[in-house]
Measured scan of single mutants.
Amino acid sequence: GSLMYASIFGNVSAIIQRLYSGTARYHTQMLRVREFIRFHQIPNPLRQRLEEYFQHAWSYTNGIDMNAVLKGFPECLQADICLHLNRSLLQHCKPFRGATKGCLRALAMKFKTTHAPPGDTLVHAGDLLTALYFISRGSIEILRGDVVVAILGKNDIFGEPLNLYARPGKSNGDVRALTYCDLHKIHRDDLLEVLDMYPEFSDHFWSSLEITFNLRDTNMIPGSPGSTELEGGFSRQRKRKLSFRRRTDKDTEQPGEVSALGPGRAGAGPSSRGRPGGPWGESPSSGPSSPESSEDEGPGRSSSPLRLVPFSSPRPPGEPPGGEPLMEDCEKSSDTCNPLSGAFSGVSNIFSFWGDSRGRQYQELPRCPAPTPSLLNIPLSSPGRRPRGDVESRLDALQRQLNRLETRLSADMATVLQLLQRQMTLVPPAYSAVTTPGPGPTSTSPLLPVSPLPTLTLDSLSQVSQFMACEELPPGAPELPQEGPTRRLSLPGQLGALTSQPLHRHGSDPGS
C-alpha cells in the first residue's frame, strides 16, 4: 500500500510541476520586462504597450523563439521550412505564380514574418522605404497627419515599386495596425538579389506586381527641396563636378596662354591676372594647382613670374625650331616645348642647366612650328573623362623618358669634360720664339709635331656638333674642335714665318 501511495504521489506532483513550468517561465520573463521598464524609466503609455505586446506574443508563440529554433537546422532544411511557412503567400499572390521551385525557395529564405499588435506603428512618415510588405492577416491604416487616407487588409501590398527607383524613397505617411496583424516583408536588397539570379522571372514579377498603396513621397523628385535634403551631399558634389568641367572646357578654348597655377587659371584673360583667384576666387580649394602655386600668395601677385606667355621676339635665322618633346602628345598638341628640351639645344645650356634650372624654367623657349593648343594648358582630366590607368601609364612613360634624357646628358657632359682635359694635357705650358741651342744640326726643328685630335665617332658628340652648327654659343662658352686643319689655341699665330727665318745662335768662333 505504501508503494502504491508513493507512486501516485510522485506522478501527481510531476504533472503539477509540468503544468506550472510554463507559468514560471512566463513570470520570469515578465519580471525581466518590468525590470527593464523600471531601469530605463519608460513612461506609462509606452510601458503599457510593452506589457501588452509581451503578453500577446507569449500567448501567440508560447514563449518560443522561432528564429532561434529555425537557425538550429541546416540551410537546406531551413529553405523547406521557410517554404512551408510562406506557402499561403507564395501560392495566392499573383506576382509569385509561375516561378520555379528554386526561385520560390530563394524568396522564402528572404521573407521575414512580423507580428504587430493593435496601435503599433510599422512605418513612420519620413522613414526610408527599405522593404516591401505583404499583409497575411489583420488590417492596417495609413495616416497623413491625423487623416486616415487608406485601410488595407489581407493580401494587400504596400511599399514602393523598387524597379522604378535606384534609391529608396521616404514614406509619405504613417502605417498603423488596427488589429493583430501578420506581415511578410522582404528587404529591398534581398528581393533585387533574387531577381538578379532569376532574370526570366524578374520581368514577370515586375509586370504582375500591383502595389495597393504606394508609400513613396511624390514630392521626392529631382530638383525638389525634399530631394535635395535626401541627396544633399551627392547633389552638391555633382554640381561641383559639372562646374569644374564647364570651366576646364572654357580653358581649352584659349591656347595662347600657358599658366603654371593649374587648370583653373589657364583660361583667365590678361585683365584677371591681378585678381586673387581668377574664376576660382569664390572657392580657392575647388581646383588643383601645381607646386608653384604656393608662391602666388606673396605680395606682387600681378607681377609674379609664374604666369607664362609666349615671347614675341624673333628667332635667329640659324636657330632650330626646338628640341624633341618629352611626351608623344607634344608633337601634336603643344605650341611651347618643355623646359628640359631647351637644355639640349647647345653645349652652353648643358654647362648651365643644373646651376640655374629654376631660373631657366621661365626663360624664352623655342617654339614648335605648329600653332596647336598648349601642352601645359590642357586641363586636368576628371576620373569620369580619362581612366586612372591611362594617366598612370603616361606618367610612367614620361618618367622613363626623363631617365633616358638624364643618362644621355650625363654621358655627353662626361665626354666633353674628358676631351677638354685631354686638350689641356697635350698642350705645353708655354712657348717662346727663341729656342735653346741643340747639340747638333738636327735641332733646327722649332717644335715637335703635334698629332691632331682623333675624329669623334660617338653619337652623342655628333649631336653636340649638330647643335653647335645651329645654335649661337654665348661669349663665355668653350669652343669644341671642328672639322678641318686643327691648330692649338695656345700656339702663336705666325708659326709659318718662324720656319722661314734663320735661327740666331749665340757662340764663340775658336779662330777669332
Rank of each mutant, 00 (worst) to 15 (best):
Y198L: 02
L495V: 09
N172A: 11
S224R: 09
D329I: 11
L409I: 08
L376F: 10
L209H: 03
R245W: 07
G159I: 01
M424N: 11
K239M: 12
V258P: 12
D396M: 09
V258N: 13
S302Q: 13
P485N: 15
R358Q: 05
G298D: 15
R388F: 12
F234E: 12
Y165M: 06
V434L: 13
S313T: 07
D296A: 12
L409R: 03
R505V: 10
E324Q: 07
G476A: 11
N338G: 12
P310L: 04
L417V: 14
Y165W: 13
R315L: 13
C368E: 12
D249Q: 06
P270F: 13
S508M: 09
Y198T: 01
P481M: 12
P485F: 12
V149I: 12
S283H: 15
L164C: 13
Y180H: 15
L409F: 15
K250M: 10
L375T: 15
P439A: 13
G355D: 10
M468I: 10
M197H: 12
T436G: 08
R188E: 03
F353A: 08
R238I: 13
E160V: 03
N403V: 14
A266P: 06
R246C: 11
G138V: 02
T130D: 13
V347Y: 09
L242W: 14
E257I: 09
V434D: 07
P161H: 08
E193P: 03
I142A: 02
P371D: 08
R236T: 14
N163M: 08
A266D: 14
R273D: 15
P270T: 11
S139N: 15
N349K: 15
A166N: 04
P429S: 07
T179F: 02
S227V: 09
E406N: 08
G507E: 11
R394T: 09
G496Y: 13
I211V: 12
N155R: 06
S432R: 08
L230A: 11
T179V: 04
R386H: 15
N163R: 07
Q494F: 15
A497C: 09
L162Q: 08
G264I: 10
T435H: 12
Q482N: 13
E472G: 12
P441E: 12
D127R: 03
R176L: 06
L495S: 07
R386S: 12
V175P: 02
S357F: 15
Y165D: 11
L215F: 02
E253L: 09
L143P: 02
C337K: 15
L215T: 02
L242M: 08
F344Q: 11
H184S: 08
G232I: 08
G159H: 01
V450T: 15
L178G: 06
R385D: 13
I211Q: 02
N338L: 10
S333A: 10
G287Q: 08
E328Q: 11
L453R: 10
E200M: 04
P379D: 08
A268V: 12
S303I: 14
D356A: 13
P317E: 13
I350F: 07
M468W: 15
R167E: 10
P373Y: 09
Q466T: 11
N155V: 03
P305R: 09
W206E: 03
T457V: 05
P317F: 15
I378V: 10
T248I: 12
P263T: 10
S357C: 13
P314N: 05
I135G: 01
P481F: 05
P449M: 06
P452I: 07
L376N: 09
L398M: 15
P428I: 06
T130Q: 10
P492L: 04
H187T: 12
A370T: 10
P317Y: 06
S243E: 09
D196A: 10
F213T: 03
A430W: 10
R315G: 15
L453E: 11
A370K: 11
T212L: 02
P199F: 01
R422Q: 12
S171N: 01
D190C: 03
D412R: 09
P502Y: 14
P387Y: 14
R315V: 06
